[in-house]
Design a protein around this nucleic acid. Structure first.
Length: 541
RNA sequence: GCCCCGGUAGCUCAGCUGGAUAGAGCAACGGAUUUCUAAUCCGUAGGUCACAGGUUCAAAUCCUGUCCGGGGUACCA
């Protein structure tokens, strides 16, 4: 049993035995380790209720506390009113033993028996994936990993619109290039896709079908979609990302779900016609404007299939549904949820992760990315240049709410000293130490004497390892994977410091064995953390 | 105009469910290698946490306003 719940319980008991009001008990490690390992501000928060000096309250609680044996070395009360606990080393030694007996250390059961769906990337197949999609892809995949680490059964899902304007224009673009290459009259669409890959697809159509294709042949669009999608899947695989399910918009037209959904809204008087278009009466549900559902051209806006799709996901019975969207969806997903709620569908298990845009900087200048204009840096280029590990770490180490300035030149220059290597190097170093120990026959970690671990750098590292499950649990609630990369960086840092302070394998066999145990424990944490982030943990570098 | 995100060291960013002395990487400068990997470690320097109010015993963190940057506010997605 971890120490946090035990202490919380002891504090709760003390409060009730004193007749003090119930308070939420928050225990957290203080910044300054001189205060101990865990602190609570309980005396401060009680001070107002009791109209008493917080220090005095702290002392009273301290005296009333009944603590588990040998777990806590010391309890102190410090100004302005904190209650601090110094945890005994024995507890941490036990944690190390736990880690060594469980190479899944860090995993938990919070999501056991529960199904989660993570929808991400979801780029329409109109061109290669660019840097912006990269952030989405890595974020979605890492969150999926995180859910799996918390026991969820996760479906990674990619949704795309294959019935809308974008794909139509894509087909027209290919068609135009086809006739252009054949030297015939062609009409390049106004908003056509200008990338070279369009010409490649057109050429392959010529190679397989010759010049017999005629204007408006559906094959242009079909072939483009097929080819580009294959490329997208390959790009994602380059980042170690594999989807369980692809769902497309067309499905919901064909199975009647969209008509059904519109009809239900109509029955609730939430749909009306105006100016030849069909509108969603979102103002009736508290929004400040209505939205067009079906354009006067007869083409539905993307909100319509999107809502039908989300209803479908809800129906599939997931306990948790996560959408990973770029900031351009900020204003649109609330309408989707609103429509679902209007139909009596619960949406409180849907969580939307909005990430801010990636600003690409090249040659000191911002590059405005556009798939249509073929002005972008692709994921393939990025992965080829930096490697999957670096790309993944780069995208995940920053919070999703921050705009990401991606300086391509800098990323290339710094690839040699990229922060991800710091973590990987620690892991490789560990592997080497373990190997060195084995060569000298110092590898017994089944009955080592853990009490020999008492150097400050050893204890600091060990205490860090103890936090790992707690980090995973917190990341589950916040769904902010950067907390994990931050943690791993700290862990690697503490390890490197320990390494420079303490020689692991020496003539002192007992001490060596104890230190090997600590090193192996660190390896488990770093290895597990890296695998959660989808980053390799090399044995040597 | 309105909505969302951000503004923290020269640069890129952590920290934000309020806590005790605000951090890291890069860049700058100075050290450490007869040693299990120097892709490391130690040290120096670098801050009005955009600004102004407010709440609180306590604010980078919460609230209000202002300024600046990005995104949205389309019968584009």
């Amino acid at each position: 049993m971890t120490i946090l719940p035990q202490l919380t319980k002891a504090l709760t008991k003390a409060l009730s035995s004193l007749g003090y009001p119930e308070k939420e008990i928050k225990l957290s490690p203080p910044n300054n380790t001189n205060f101990g390992d865990l602190s609570t501000n309980l005396p401060l928060t009680l001070s107002k209720n009791l109209n008493k000096n917080p220090i005095e309250i702290g002392e009273i609680i301290r005296n009333a506390l009944i603590l588990p044996d040998k777990l806590i070395d010391e309890v102190t009360v410090t100004k302005p009113g904190f209650l601090n606990f110094k945890i005994g080393n024995a507890y941490y030694y036990q944690v190390l033993a736990d880690i060594l007996s469980n190479n899944q250390y860090g995993k938990n059961d919070f999501g056991k028996g529960q199904k989660a769906n993570v929808e991400f990337v979801s780029a329409n197949p109109t061109g290669p994936l660019n840097v912006g999609h990269g952030r989405n892809a890595v974020l979605g995949d890492t969150v999926s990993n995180l859910l799996e680490w918390n026991g969820y059964n996760v479906t990674r899902e990619y949704y795309y619109n294959d019935a809308g304007r974008q794909m139509r224009v894509l087909g027209q673009s290919v068609e135009a290039r086809y006739f252009e290459i054949l030297g015939k009259v062609f009409d390049f669409p106004e908003d056509g896709y200008e990338g070279n890959y369009i010409k490649v697809i057109a050429q392959s159509l010529i190679d397989t079908h010759g010049d017999v294709l005629s204007v408006g042949d559906p094959i242009f669009k079909v072939e483009a979609e097929k080819t580009i999608f294959a490329d997208i899947e390959k790009s994602l695989l380059g980042l170690g990302i594999k989807f369980d399910q692809f769902t497309n918009e067309k499905t919901f037209y064909e199975n009647g779900e969209i008509d059904k959904f519109l009809e239900e809204l109509r029955l609730k008087n939430l749909i009306y016609k105006k100016d030849g278009a069909t509108w969603f009466r979102s103002t009736a549900l508290g929004k400040d404007q209505d939205r067009v559902y079906i354009k006067s051209s007869g083409e539905p806006t993307y909100r319509v299939p999107d809502t039908a799709y989300h209803r479908d996901k809800v129906k599939r019975g997931f306990n948790l549904i996560i959408d990973v969207f770029g900031a351009d969806h900020t204003d649109t997903y609330p309408d989707v949820l609103l429509a679902l709620e209007a139909l009596g569908i619960k949406t409180n298990h849907i969580r939307v992760l909005l990430y801010q845009f990636v600003t690409l900087i090249r040659g000191g200048k911002k590059v405005k990315m556009s798939t249509r204009k073929a002005n972008f840096v692709t994921i393939d280029e990025l992965v080829e240049e930096l490697g999957s590990d670096v790309v993944r770490y780069f995208f995940i180490m920053r919070g999703m709410n921050s705009h990401l300035n991606f300086d391509l030149d800098l990323a290339t220059d710094q690839s040699e000293k990229n922060p991800v290597y710091y973590l990987q190097y620690a892991h490789a170093r560990i592997c080497n130490i373990i190997k060195h120990g084995e060569d000298l026959d110092v590898s017994n970690t089944s009955d080592y004497d853990s009490t020999l671990l008492k150097d400050p750098s050893e204890m600091r590292l060990l205490k860090k390892l103890e936090k790992f499950p707690w980090i995973i649990e917190n990341a589950l609630h916040s769904l902010e994977p950067q907390t994990i990369s931050n943690y791993l960086h700290d862990t690697a840092n503490f390890f490197h410091k320990f390494y420079s302070e303490c020689r692991v394998v020496t003539d002192d066999i007992s001490l060596s064995e104890a230190r090997i145990a600590l090193v192996k424990g660190t390896k488990v944490v770093l290895g597990n953390g890296l695998s959660l982030l989808g980053i390799t943990a090399p044995e040597r570098m």
